[in-house]
Amino acid sequence: MAWEGNLWVKLNRPLTDEEKRRQLRHDVPASETPRDNFSVFSMNDVFLESTNALFRMRGMLTYGCLFLFPLTSYMLYGQVHDMTHVPESVPRDATLTAVMVGMGVILIGIVVLFLATLWGFLQENFTWTRTPIRFNRETRMIYAYRGAGAKGVIAVPWDKAFFFVEKRRKEPISRVTPYLIRCHVLDANNNVVQSFSVGSTVSTLLDETTPTGRDIVKGVSDQFEYIRQYMERGPSVLPVPDLVPTQVSLANSMRIWGRTDKAILAERNFFTTLLVLALSPFTYFTALLHYIGQRTSRQPVWPPEVERECEQTRLAEPVRA
């Protein structure tokens, strides 16, 4: 198993039937409507740099940790205090020993939960501002910055990468089902040795077998088709992307987190508008955590050999947000 943001990815195994069924082929159109869906950092005639699926969700894990940290701290303090301040009136016999052993087991559980909370906090803070993926159409190579199972940059040929639509488990609170593009790197025996996500996650409350749910999930295929057409035909055939900002600022974090809300408000639906307004404090607070996480982190730097391969040969510098 390997960890990517807040996703567990199982490695060193064959492809599953579900992954094979959901495969996105580089030589077959995935959609008739290629869309970037706010997942492109920069694009030029040589390379396209994309977000990973968790970039826009940054701040969510910190949000949960902020609630767990004081709770686990209080539990830890209380448990240690109770174990070290046994009243003198309590007999020092086998019963007390059994109680102390039980309390020790509980203490270990609390310590594990406390450390897990700190670990989760560090997944979005004091790390990288982003984990980009580069698609080089001249060398037909893909470079993924520190994805699951990799100690450094993952490099895989475009023609050998295994892409598919990944369906994640339904989220317990919101009850939505997330879908995203995942790329597996396979060895000579077609076993998964490395993996990384690409683009933006789409989520739906409806099953993908329903017309509305199917239309929402189709957004993942639209994203892949945008990348596929870029690699096969170049940027001139594609709509100009709405670039994701790479500069760290509170305004950019607000823009990233508030983009979906603005789109919903533009539909002028009474019930969805009411829901967006009710959740707006949560949205803006999480955007603040997104900004703090980026501010405490450092920008990723591609290895020199990757930068050399991605140097411009035909156009000026890429447009960046």
Results as ranks from 00 to 15, higher is better:
183 C>H: 08
126 F>I: 07
194 Q>M: 08
125 N>M: 02
129 T>N: 10
40 V>K: 07
112 V>Q: 09
98 A>K: 15
81 H>L: 03
59 G>K: 11
124 E>F: 04
26 H>A: 02
159 D>C: 02
177 T>K: 11
163 F>I: 01
31 S>E: 09
159 D>V: 05
38 F>L: 04
238 L>A: 05
50 S>W: 00
293 G>N: 09
139 T>H: 14
20 K>S: 03
106 I>A: 14
18 E>S: 14
204 T>S: 15
245 P>F: 01
255 R>K: 15
310 C>P: 10
72 T>E: 07
291 Y>H: 08
231 M>K: 06
102 G>K: 08
165 V>A: 00
203 S>H: 08
122 L>V: 03
98 A>E: 11
283 T>S: 14
208 E>C: 03
116 A>I: 01
46 V>F: 02
257 W>I: 00
218 K>T: 05
3 W>C: 01
220 V>K: 03
32 E>K: 14
105 V>N: 08
34 P>E: 00
286 T>Y: 02
141 M>L: 11
232 E>D: 14
140 R>A: 03
86 V>Y: 10
23 Q>A: 11
27 D>Q: 09
115 L>V: 04
136 N>Q: 09
55 F>Y: 15
103 M>S: 13
316 A>H: 14
267 E>D: 07
242 D>W: 07
146 R>Y: 10
216 I>R: 15
238 L>P: 14
92 R>N: 14
275 L>H: 07
288 L>D: 00
29 P>T: 01
212 T>A: 05
213 G>Q: 04
260 T>V: 02
77 Y>V: 05
240 V>D: 15
8 W>I: 04
106 I>P: 03
285 F>C: 03
30 A>V: 05
146 R>G: 03
2 A>H: 09
235 P>S: 12
180 L>Y: 04
107 L>V: 01
320 R>M: 06
191 N>C: 06
150 A>D: 10
120 G>K: 07
20 K>D: 02
205 L>E: 11
28 V>C: 07
277 L>C: 12
52 N>V: 00
13 R>Q: 12
40 V>A: 01
268 R>M: 02
318 P>T: 01
203 S>P: 08
272 T>L: 09
271 F>Q: 13
315 L>F: 06
233 R>L: 07
101 V>D: 11
161 A>W: 05
174 S>N: 09
109 G>Y: 05
40 V>I: 15
40 V>N: 11
55 F>T: 07
71 L>S: 10
281 P>Q: 02
50 S>N: 13
264 I>S: 08
279 L>C: 14
315 L>P: 02
275 L>W: 10
57 M>I: 00
145 Y>N: 05
39 S>V: 03
310 C>I: 00
4 E>A: 06
7 L>M: 10
165 V>T: 07
168 R>F: 02
179 Y>L: 01
205 L>T: 12
138 E>Q: 15
6 N>C: 05
24 L>R: 04
81 H>V: 00
266 A>N: 15
130 R>V: 00
116 A>F: 12
99 V>Y: 07
156 V>K: 08
47 F>C: 12
238 L>Q: 12
181 I>V: 13
126 F>T: 01
164 F>I: 03
247 Q>P: 04
105 V>L: 06
166 E>H: 10
142 I>T: 06
235 P>A: 04
169 R>D: 13
66 L>W: 13
142 I>L: 09
81 H>F: 08
239 P>W: 01
128 W>N: 12
